[in-house]
Deep mutational scan, measured.
Amino acid sequence: KKKYVIKVYFEDTGKEVEIEAESKEEALEAAKRLAEELGLKIKKVEIYP
């Protein structure tokens, strides 16, 4: 089964997080949740198959 690796870059902090997920949708949801939890804004998202 294919996994996606999503790199999320946050504004202000210069922080980046990698998330593995089964689908792009799932990964983007996780990225949004994470940003909310951390109180950060997402600057850029890169998706690698």
Rank of each mutant, 00 (worst) to 15 (best):
K1N: 11
K1C: 13
K1H: 11
K1F: 13
K1E: 05
K1A: 07
K2P: 02
K2W: 14
K2V: 09
K3F: 14
K3Y: 13
Y4N: 01
Y4S: 01
Y4T: 02
V5F: 10
V5L: 05
V5R: 14
V5I: 08
I6Y: 15
I6G: 02
I6K: 00
I6V: 04
I6L: 09
K7C: 03
K7Q: 02
K7E: 01
K7I: 04
K7T: 04
V8Q: 00
Y9K: 03
F10L: 03
F10A: 01
F10S: 01
F10C: 02
F10K: 00
E11L: 15
E11K: 14
E11R: 15
D12K: 14
D12L: 13
T13D: 04
G14E: 08
G14T: 10
K15W: 06
K15N: 14
K15I: 06
E16T: 11
V17A: 06
V17F: 10
E18M: 09
E18K: 04
E18A: 05
E18P: 02
E18G: 04
E18W: 08
E18V: 09
I19M: 11
I19G: 01
E20R: 07
E20A: 09
E20W: 12
E20V: 11
E20M: 10
E20S: 06
E20N: 06
E20H: 11
A21Y: 05
A21I: 11
E22L: 06
E22R: 05
E22P: 10
E22S: 07
S23M: 02
S23A: 04
S23E: 06
K24E: 13
K24D: 09
K24M: 12
K24L: 11
E25T: 07
E25I: 07
E25P: 05
E26N: 08
A27T: 02
A27M: 02
L28E: 07
L28I: 10
L28Q: 08
L28D: 04
E29R: 14
E29L: 15
A30E: 08
A30G: 10
A31C: 05
K32E: 07
K32H: 13
K32M: 14
K32G: 04
K32P: 01
R33P: 00
L34E: 02
L34H: 06
L34D: 01
A35N: 01
A35S: 09
E36Q: 14
E36D: 11
E36W: 15
E36K: 12
E37N: 10
E37A: 15
E37F: 15
E37Q: 15
L38K: 06
L38N: 05
G39F: 05
G39A: 12
L40N: 02
L40H: 04
K41T: 08
K41Q: 04
K41D: 03
K41E: 05
K41L: 09
K41M: 09
I42A: 01
I42Q: 00
I42Y: 02
K43G: 07
K43S: 05
K43F: 13
K43N: 08
K43M: 11
K44P: 01
K44T: 05
V45Q: 02
V45Y: 11
V45W: 13
E46M: 12
E46W: 12
I47E: 08
I47C: 05
I47M: 13
Y48D: 05
Y48F: 14
Y48I: 10
Y48W: 12
Y48R: 09
P49S: 14
P49R: 11
P49K: 12
P49V: 11
P49N: 14
P49Q: 15
